[in-house]
Computed example of a mutant assay.
Amino acid sequence: MKKLVNNPIKAVDEMIEGYVKAYPNYIKTVGENLRALVTAKETKENKVGVIIGGGAGHEPGFMGYIGTGFADGVPVGNIFASPPPDPILDITKEIDKGAGVIYLYGNYQGDIMNFGMAADLADLEADIRVETVRVTDDVVSAPKDRLEERRGIAGSFFVYKAAGAAADLGYSLDHVVRIANKANDSTRSMGVGLSPCSLPQTGEPSFELADHEMEIGLGVHGEPGLYKGEIRPAESIVNELMEHILADMPISRGEKVAVLVNGLGSTPQMELYIMFRSVAKILEDQGIIIYRSYVGNYLTSLEMGGCSVSLMKLDDELTTMIDHPADCAMFVQK
């Protein structure tokens, strides 16, 4: 599987160097720590600091969402691997404005361990209060009675967006945490994989799929889904994804949602819009109102083929968070 890299071992660091050089008005490193990225813009005193993050390979997540109205900092791990505690702690100290810091990340054991260590160190070394919200939007990764075990996938975009808006509005840390948890509780996602990706270090496919196969419920790192089967028309795939999402999400006719159809890296925009067309038809038939739509690559898996569908049920408070302006290198909302 071909890659435009130099030394595969240095691919993540060279990507970050290129990103910082491309967008110096948005992003900078903390000192010499290349894996600790923060906003290049001034932030207000007594603003809650927002840190999102995880492994590389999900671009534009996560560093593409550093900016006004979104995240203040992102620690970058190796590909599909949690960042270590050091860059998380460096960012925490750099962005703290006296109101505390919130950590937001997908529900994966490596992230839980390393962000947890950084939170303890922030308290011990700098007396910074840190609170954590883990995203658990993937409906097929655990049953409804074990929500805390679910993975975080592309619906994390909505959770990060809501928390970033709340912090930008000047809300307290407790208030930001409450909104982030509410956003997570209101978001459901499910994906389909069509082809694997490959890590630069190995050049080998991350999982096996025959040319005629798809995998329903695949995780964002290639974790196993519900089943592998023959590829079907987009409408049929969407019907299955939406059946699972809507069965898991308490929502009624007349309520409104934000919708994300997220590409996993190599799926053309044409196909994502075809998928969105079917999502919109199902919601229209059920009397559910699409308030905002996002279609494109928001949280990828290198060059994996496929996509995911995410819905966030909106009330007035979450609508305010979703509507709030954001200005990042890879995401702008006015």
Results as ranks from 00 to 15, higher is better:
K2T: 12
K2E: 13
N7T: 13
N7A: 07
E14G: 06
E14K: 14
E14V: 12
V20Q: 01
V20T: 03
P24R: 04
V30P: 02
G31M: 01
G31Q: 01
E32R: 13
E32Y: 02
L34Y: 08
R35T: 05
L37Q: 10
K47R: 15
V48R: 01
V48W: 01
G49A: 10
G49L: 09
V50R: 04
G54Q: 05
E59N: 07
M63C: 12
M63Q: 11
A71F: 06
V74I: 11
F80V: 08
D86Q: 15
D86A: 15
P87T: 01
D90P: 02
T92R: 06
K93W: 02
E94S: 11
I95D: 09
K97P: 03
A99L: 06
G100M: 04
N107S: 11
G116C: 04
M117T: 14
D120I: 12
L121K: 15
L121Q: 12
E125N: 13
V135H: 01
D137L: 09
V139W: 00
V140K: 09
A142T: 04
K144M: 14
K144Y: 11
L147D: 12
E148H: 13
E149F: 06
G152D: 08
A154N: 08
G155A: 05
S156L: 13
A163D: 00
D168A: 15
L169D: 13
L169V: 05
S172Q: 10
I179C: 02
A180F: 05
A180I: 07
A183P: 05
S189Y: 02
M190T: 05
V192H: 07
G193T: 03
C197K: 00
S198M: 00
L199P: 04
P200R: 01
P205I: 00
F207L: 00
A210P: 00
E213D: 03
E213H: 01
I216M: 15
G217P: 11
G219K: 00
G219V: 00
G222L: 02
G222Y: 01
G229R: 11
E230P: 00
S236R: 10
E240H: 07
L241H: 03
H244L: 10
H244S: 10
L246I: 11
L246C: 07
A247G: 14
P250A: 14
P250W: 09
S252H: 12
V259L: 08
G263N: 02
P268G: 09
P268F: 12
M270Y: 13
V279M: 05
K281E: 15
E284A: 14
G287D: 10
I288G: 11
Y291I: 03
Y291N: 12
Y294I: 05
N297Y: 07
L299T: 09
L299G: 00
C307G: 08
S308F: 10
K313W: 06
L314E: 07
D315F: 06
E317Q: 12
T319Q: 13
T319I: 11
I322G: 09
D323P: 09
A326Y: 04
D327R: 02
Q333E: 15
